[in-house]
Design a protein around this nucleic acid. Structure first.
Length: 422
RNA sequence: CCUGUCUCAUAUAUAUUCC
């Protein structure tokens, strides 16, 4: 069985859950190899990670019907997936279910729940769970992953004071758990995103002084922070310093810099870096190209942007994503090619809300509010869900055109669709 | 008596409105 489990795991990791299920249903049964709970867990995890949570839940029910007993890993896997799918209530239900079946939650169970709560900003509930863990009556103690999840939640809610406080507690040993590279990367990124670049740099210095080892993610977070704080020179210097320390810049490192050059209207330097990274053995990805395409469009060079698009698809064999199309549609409008922009929206595969937003915005900025509304209606016909940005664009367009009745009608529609006006 | 396991959790880059 263990051999099968390993095969199933590698298939799942490669994203081939269909093949894994085939072996599970066919070969294993034929050879009379009885699946264990690990077999089920492996496949359920595979299904969950390839966005087939429903199939994972079905397999869960199947294993129970067949008389197997789900273990803590089974529950953890499903709870984690439910959290990531935004269904915290169902996750909490499974959490209760596992206890009632005599399955004891472990540190992973708590960590996935805390992570799930943090990801949707429910910091207070996450904090409560941590406090529950540290009570004497609870024999599951938080580990560094638990604290890292919570720390990230604090940062993402801009609660950097509490985040720094948590870091202090981790470092002074009062929590009996030591920070790791992820802890530092999380805090550095959080401080940068809150505009506290100096604090981020000093956390980085503390990290080095304390003998902790930064990895490429730590550097990327800091380089990104420096770029966004308009400190390009220091960001550049970090590249050399990371290489000195034996950390190789990756595609994200370069993409951060490429984007920063683009945003600073230094597209030619971005292009230079694009070629430079390739010659240093780092292949650009779709994000790198999206930045370049955006930079070119915003520098009124949409012709070159389309050349880049061809380079990306034909030479590099990269598939454009939703952001690529959104960027191009927006860029075409900005460079006065409304017709081409609309044609691209029609031509792109599975246009999404963002692509429509770009088009609606382009038309609206041209003063063609009625056409913008037509496109909006087309989007509704496709069963796409407008977001806050869609309405902000349409309402601004109606106001600018002096049509306040229409604007307030749109406002009502927005509220009716449960979107919070800002 | 102890140990050994095949499955689970955390951090970094790009676009559309306003700033």
């Amino acid at each position: 069985v263990a051999d099968y489990n390993i095969v199933l795991q590698s298939l799942c990791r490669a994203g081939d859950t269909a093949h894994a299920l085939e072996i599970f249903r066919g070969e294993m049964a034929r050879d009379g190899v009885a699946p264990t709970i690990v077999t089920y867990n492996t496949i359920i995890n595979g299904l969950c990670k390839s966005n087939e949570l429903g199939a994972g839940m079905e397999l869960f029910e199947e294993l129970v019907e067949r008389g197997h007993h789900p273990d803590v890993v089974t529950y953890n896997t499903l709870i984690d997936s439910l959290c990531k799918a935004g269904d915290l209530e169902e996750a909490r239900r499974l959490h209760g279910d596992m206890s009632s079946r005599g399955c004891v939650p472990n540190v992973v169970t708590y960590s996935v729940l805390i992570n799930g709560l943090c990801k949707v900003g429910r910091i207070d509930e996450a904090r409560e769970l941590i406090q529950e863990m540290t009570r004497k009556s609870c024999d599951v103690l938080p580990n560094i992953i638990t604290y890292n999840s919570f720390l990230d939640g604090l940062c993402k809610q801009s609660m950097t004071a509490e985040a720094c406080e948590l870091m202090r507690s981790l470092r002074d040993g009062s929590l009996r758990v030591s920070p790791d590279t992820v802890t530092f990367s999380t805090l550095i990124d959080g401080l940068c995103k809150c505009g506290q670049i100096d604090e981020a740099c000093s956390v980085f210095d503390d990290m080095i002084a304390g003998g902790y080892v930064p990895n490429v993610i730590t550097y990327n977070a800091l380089v990104n922070g420096l770029c966004k704080a308009d400190k390009m020179e220091r960001a550049h210097a970090m590249i050399e310093s990371m290489v000195d320390k034996g950390v190789t810049p990756d595609v994200i490192t370069y993409s951060v810099l490429v984007d920063a050059f683009c945003k600073a209207s230094r597209v030619d330097e971005a292009l230079e870096l694009l070629h430079g990274m390739a010659s240093r053995g780092c292949t650009p990805n779709v994000v790198t190209f999206n930045s370049i395409i955006d930079g070119l469009c915003k520098s009124d060079r949409s012709g070159e942007a389309f050349q880049m698009f061809d380079d990306m698809t034909l030479k590099h064999g990269l598939a454009p994503d939703k952001i690529t199309y959104c960027t191009l549609i927006d860029g075409l409008f900005r460079t006065g090619r409304a017709g081409q922009a609309e044609a691209l929206l029609d031509a792109m595969p599975d246009p999404d809300t963002y692509a429509f937003n770009c088009c609606i915005n382009g038309l609206s900025k041209l003063g063609d509010v009625s056409r913008a509304l037509q496109v909006y209606n087309r989007m509704l016909e496709l069963k796409l869900v407008p977001d806050k940005v869609t309405f902000n664009i349409l309402i601004a367009g109606a106001c600018k055109a002096g049509n306040f009745e229409q604007a307030s009608a749109l406002f009502e529609e927005m509220v009716a669709k449960n979107l919070q006006p800002d």
